[in-house]
């Protein structure tokens, strides 16, 4: 009797011990996913940060970061931030207008469907082909440039070259605008017709409805999307590189320049540049994440 009870107790103890083991096993199934991210994302990122705060002998050092703060390098951060902010805000405004036009149900359907699918694709267009398409249009011998020159005698590239600030802005807008439209489309489509009707029946005009209803509801989604656009432009490499042939004063292009070994490589300095770039992008995306937590509450 007492031995049987003992057996039961022993079994219970074994089972009890196994239950937490089972949950551990459940989590173990996530190992490949987590491991991939650790080996191919987190470790390289940490290696960057570690290299940035050490000198070539492995001693702690902040000299790499001090070098980043020198005017010539700081200026590329400033130019990149300016380009990213400009394309994020202009792209944000144009994208909102595009999204608004796309949500109309009385517009010609074919036109709307074509632009909708095109926007989805164009938001991923950043890269070498887009750069060449723009060179074919607005480069020195581009179609638009020569046509305008033949018609008016004005050489566009005298005023705006593609590798300059406004040229790059124009190229970036080609993918930033559709990206914005795609991002805010759910928020704009989520505005209910009844809200407009309720507001109107309570005596609000169009402007009042826009200001008091539409704006507060869509603001977090819109601001979050603009932040994503900023991060997107800040990280872009291929487009700027292909347009300028590596000559643009942008952080990504400069890092690429260091990596390809075009200059004597100072590992800590390159790593410090990368760390700075990741910090900026991370801050923008953190802001977006905080804003989106507010949006999803409304859109459910």
């Amino acid at each position: 009797m007492s031995s049987a009870l003992h057996d039961v107790r022993a079994t219970t103890a074994v089972v009890a011990r196994r239950v937490p083991n089972l949950t551990a096993l459940k989590h173990l199934a996530l190992a490949p996913y987590v491991l991939l991210l650790i080996v191919f994302l987190v470790v390289p990122l940490l290696a960057n940060v570690w290299t940035a705060v050490h000198d070539s002998e492995g001693n702690w050092s902040s000299s790499a970061f001090q070098k980043v703060l020198e005017p010539q390098y700081l200026s590329s951060f400033r130019d990149t931030a300016l380009l990213s902010a400009t394309t994020a805000i202009l792209g944000g405004i144009l994208g909102l207008v595009l999204a608004w036009a796309l949500t109309g149900d009385q517009v010609p359907r074919r036109l709307r469907d074509a632009l909708l699918s095109f926007s989805g694709a164009a938001s991923q267009f950043a890269g070498v082909p887009l750069a060449f398409a723009f060179i074919a249009a607005l480069g020195t011998q581009g179609l638009v440039t020569t046509t305008v020159h033949d018609a008016t005698g004005w050489q566009i590239t005298d005023t705006m070259r593609l590798q300059d600030f406004w040229g790059l802005t124009l190229v970036y807008l080609y993918f930033q605008t559709p990206l914005m439209a795609i991002l805010v489309l759910p928020a704009i489509a989520g505005l209910r017709r009844e809200w407009l009707e309720s507001a109107q029946s309570l005596g609000a005009g169009r402007a009042r409805y826009l200001w008091d209803i539409t704006l507060p509801i869509t603001a977090p989604a819109v601001a979050g999307a603009v932040l994503l656009l900023f991060a997107n432009a800040f990280s872009a490499y291929a487009t700027a590189y292909a347009i300028s042939g590596g000559g643009a004063n942008l952080v990504a292009v400069m890092i690429g320049f260091f990596i390809s070994g075009n200059v004597l490589l100072d590992e800590s300095f390159a790593a410090a540049l990368v760390t700075g770039m990741v910090l900026v992008v991370a801050l923008a995306l953190l802001g977006r994440w905080l804003l989106l937590r507010r949006t999803t509450r409304w859109m459910r």
Partner: peptide
């Protein structure tokens, strides 16, 4: 975790991959 890669631009990933 799945959106984490957005934080690391491609050029940054290359530099980290080289170092690692």
């Amino acid at each position: 975790l799945s959106v984490l890669p957005m934080v690391v631009p491609a050029v940054a990933l290359v530099n980290g991959a080289n170092l690692t």
